[in-house]
Write a protein that binds this DNA or RNA. Sequence first.
DNA 1: CCAAGAATGGGTTTGCAATCCCATAAACGA
DNA 2: TCGTTTATGGGATTGCAAACCCATTCTTGG
Lengths: 210, 210
Amino acid sequence: MSATSPPAPRLTRKGQATKERILQVAADLILEHGVHGTQIDDVRKAAGVSGSQMTHYFHDKRCLIAEVVAWQAQDNLDNHTQPALGNLDSFAALHTWARLLLERQQDRAYVGGCQFGSLAGQLVESDPEVRAGLADGFTRLLKLFRDGLQAMRDRGDLRPDADPEQLSHVLIAAMQGGMLLTQTLRRPEPLRDALNGAIAHVETFAAAAE
Amino acid sequence: MSATSPPAPRLTRKGQATKERILQVAADLILEHGVHGTQIDDVRKAAGVSGSQMTHYFHDKRCLIAEVVAWQAQDNLDNHTQPALGNLDSFAALHTWARLLLERQQDRAYVGGCQFGSLAGQLVESDPEVRAGLADGFTRLLKLFRDGLQAMRDRGDLRPDADPEQLSHVLIAAMQGGMLLTQTLRRPEPLRDALNGAIAHVETFAAAAE
DNA sequence: CCAAGAATGGGTTTGCAATCCCATAAACGA
DNA sequence: TCGTTTATGGGATTGCAAACCCATTCTTGG
């Protein structure tokens, strides 16, 4: 289906480990310096491998990037399935989610934004296949929230006229936009207000208390 | 203040025109192919100038990019001060704003996203000076909305507890995030829902009717 | 333990974008 | 009008990232 991988030789355990180390390092460097500010050779050095490994495991930069996208998509998803967040199917969970995002950005001095969103911003128009990978990442993230909101509606926390799909769009857009603003302005307020606003909007669909 | 310009030789009228033509072309190409997918030589050809002009007017790529950022920031602002939008100081104007954004994205088949936001996503972490230019662009856009919302509050359309600053964050974040999602997923719904949600949130602060 | 195949090292090549240079033509100001 | 400054043309140069290659050393399964 995808031409992102090299002719797919079998990987030994050691090879798998090396490949993952390269991916991890590449993801970190890209977060810090941007896709085009990151050279293959930087990754090579930081991962402590020789030049031929890069070709061996990823064929070329385009393939590496495509795999980093998939990696970050998964990582992003994992970040949203922490125990503290449960299934993102309560108002409390949404507030916790917002709080954790804010704290993380503050810890990073607002540098880097959303790992996945940053990649998206840099790569959407770069290559159809990469764009498809990004779209897939967003789709899965949206699904996580849509499922949570659906559960809240099924349970009666949200009124029947609440549309989980629409509300998931509101929440994720607020996150991405808020991240971008906060990252650019180096201030927490835009992200804080965007998330609070989005959650407040969800809460307008809360079923009347008892 | 900024080292973005060459030693700043005086520009004749003709020189000014040429420089602006280059900027316009560069902005278009960058929107379509991304910052790093756009080569100086592509811009050169598309603008119909010779190699030395690029150096003459912009010294190097970094300076060109910085000026494109400023250009797009202004263009973005101009797009938000159309007659149809007035001073963005009414609910009707906000709805019109959302409608226009959506229509524009549909016309473009969701390619390109927000010109300014795309630049931001690609360049935030690239260079402190460029980041400052991006921050300035966002700040001015936010101010436009904050002023409009402030006017609505002063006029009594919004209740006193509505915070124009916070609401401007909500609106612009929804726009940026919605644009990114719509651009990536190539579907209108995320942008539509994000904008509608944000505006609905503003409307929860509407003063009670008559 | 021994092929077969995978992992690794590191150097080379290649291609191209960015920058620089010099000469000429045009525009401007006094 | 004339000298000075700016605009333009079209290379030439340089620097570097990406891709390629071959030799060597490990891993692994039978």
